[in-house]
């Protein structure tokens, strides 16, 4: 459907992919596929728009950084350690903290100026409308 890779196959592309994989392995930097999957994403789409949601409890809006470059959405952020006081005794610590990056490839070009994002109850949702020029058009066939 529209989640297809439009690039045609080339051996150099394969090599570049391999290089990217290796870089990611050694950098510990996530490119949005396998290693680090934080935050977990849900993505919905139709022919007009894409919606991405992520559960990110305990952040402030200024801790989040979203960008779309070359059909790739990048979600960057940091969850700060919220220990109440230095001398507080910790009995249980299950909530992690730290910086994260997640990149997801979008199936089509989006209107960068019309992207809307909201952060509500710890859930981030980003709505990205498709670029008009890339929408599928029906082609009329004329009879002679």
């Amino acid at each position: 459907m529209y989640w297809t890779n439009s690039r045609t196959w080339s051996p150099f592309g394969e090599l570049r992919g391999l290089q990217r994989e290796m870089n990611r392995l050694f950098d510990g930097y996530d490119n949005g596929t396998s290693l680090s999957r934080f935050p977990a994403l849900n993505v919905w789409g139709n022919t007009d728009q894409i919606i991405v949601t992520a559960e990110l409890p305990g952040l402030e809006i200024e801790d989040l950084d979203l960008s779309v470059v070359n059909n790739q959405l990048t979600i960057k952020g940091e969850r700060k350690n919220d220990k109440p006081a230095e001398d507080a005794v910790c009995h249980r610590n299950e909530r992690g903290c730290g910086a994260f990056v997640r990149t997801v490839k979008l199936p089509f070009a989006v209107e960068n100026d019309r992207i809307t994002a909201k952060y509500e109850n710890g859930v981030l949702s980003i709505v990205m409308p498709r670029q008009e020029a890339t929408k599928p058009k029906r082609i009329e066939i004329k009879t002679a």
């Binding site: 990110l56 409890p57 220990k83 507080a88 005794v89 009995h91 909530r95 710890g122």
Partner: peptide, 16 residues
């Protein structure tokens, strides 16, 4: 997360 201070216990739960 559960923290204990001198005068209180603080419980924080992630519930997005």
């Amino acid at each position: 997360d559960i923290y204990e201070k001198d005068d209180s216990i603080l419980v924080r739960c992630d519930m997005p």
